[in-house]
Design a protein around this nucleic acid. Sequence first.
RNA 1: GGUCCCAUCGUCUAGUGGCCUAGGACGCUGGUCUCUCAAGCCGGAAACAGGGGUUCGAAUCCCCUUGGGACCGCCA
Length: 490
Amino acid sequence: MKPRVRFAPSPTGELHVGGARTALFNWLFARKHQGSFILRFEDTDIERNRPELIEPILESLRWLGLDWDEGPFFQSQRLALYRAYAERLLKAGQAYRCYCTLEELEEKRRQALRAKHKPKYDGHCRSLSPAEQKRYESEGRQPAVRFKAPQTGITIVQDLIRGRVEFDNSELDDFILLRSDGRPTYNFAVVVDDLDMRITHVIRADEHLNNTPKQILLYQALGHGQALPQFAHVPMVLAKDRTKLSKRHGATAVLEFRERGILPEALLNHLARLGWSYGDQEIFSRAELIEKFSLEAVHPAAAIFDEEKLLWLNHHYIMTGDPKRLGRLVCEFALERGLLSESEAKSIPDERFSAVVALLKERKRSLVELAEGALPFLTDRLEYDPKAVERFLTADRAALLRSIADALQRVAAENFRTSILEERVRVHLESQGLTLKDAAQPCRVALTGLMAGPGLFETMEFLGKRRVIERLEWAIEKMRQMGDPLTAEG
RNA sequence: GGUCCCAUCGUCUAGUGGCCUAGGACGCUGGUCUCUCAAGCCGGAAACAGGGGUUCGAAUCCCCUUGGGACCGCCA
């Protein structure tokens, strides 16, 4: 039987890295076993639902390349199904109507908490007489439907990651199946849907392990004990301070990482290695992930999301990725961030973008760094680092740059190639009794405005003769201006 | 408070009783290369939470303690 798995987010928040990893594990499992990956929105909480979040969640999955085979389904559109199942349980005496009000229940919970007891429903409506039911109905009370949970015995969860976990049924209470307005609660909707969608493997976050016995009991009450899926509860992803990821931890949402210039393959790789490993291997292509993933190899302990390592992976994928694609991404980034105007971007050929990626990729860890770093190479809007200018574009070095500019002027534009330029400049400097060390930094600052960057001759080749000469001339002029008053006084 | 889960370098992890004087990766750090910064290469510091067992032998098995986490809603 082909496995059928599902990812079931609720649209109450953005897709964060923890949810994304759960989705990834499901997806990998489905792809590895040629099964189906089903997407389902658990949107029965009308108060907390935010429909505008659905598209970003879909977009997050698309961006990561986690394509689903069925869905997205919406629980809010399947209410009749849950009611039918509830009706069955009611008829079979496995569930009952509860007329307790929210206020009554809240008061009982408070009392239990005050007495330091576990708050459990007291079964007040469990065995109401028809007359009592009538009386409540006549008061206009809308009943909820509760599950008649067994109060003795144990329920065993066989978990692919945790092993065998036992729960004492006496820990359970008669939890709500349908709210008084007829909407299902989480535990009920999950079981009905997993059953209806013929889910074979429930791969979800650790926090649901405690819900599992309730769900198993529901499968059994529904007469589908045999259809019980395999469970795999994956560990949580925690923030640096070992607490649940939340807004205050900075970027946690998948789309924020995209905005920060993280490549999807880097995030995917990092997510996969959180709680899962394959020997000492760190780098995994999508295909390798599918090939090598297994639930048995998932480490049971919670993991902390390490942004430094993500950046390292991102750098790796920048280094090894297709420059054409990265060039396009850099262009998009520069546009989105307003680093380049539409017309500027249009005037720059695609090859320039892939070339600038090749030029800079060794020292850039994100698309943001790449896009920002590319500006002095793609445009003539240079930002001179004041410290760099102060240190290297000094008046006494004007003559040095002058001679280099003159030497370069004698190199034909088509010979502005790294190796040729290096040869010519070195020879020129030697003839003056100088070394590259004396000239490289002033040149670099003149050409890029920065103290750090690609090799000097790579930079020259990229910029081309016209721009190199222009920038040198401009710098020389500046240096002379700065020098003039001093020499006049001296 | 109850129930359940978890526990190897700062972080991600390898390890399934002897191959472990505990391996890899990120980060940190020393060196090297060098026109700068990176990248690369070579090296270093850095962990089995604690205590009891079991065993000839324990990071590995059991128990307790401690610490973290989750759940205990007409939230999911």
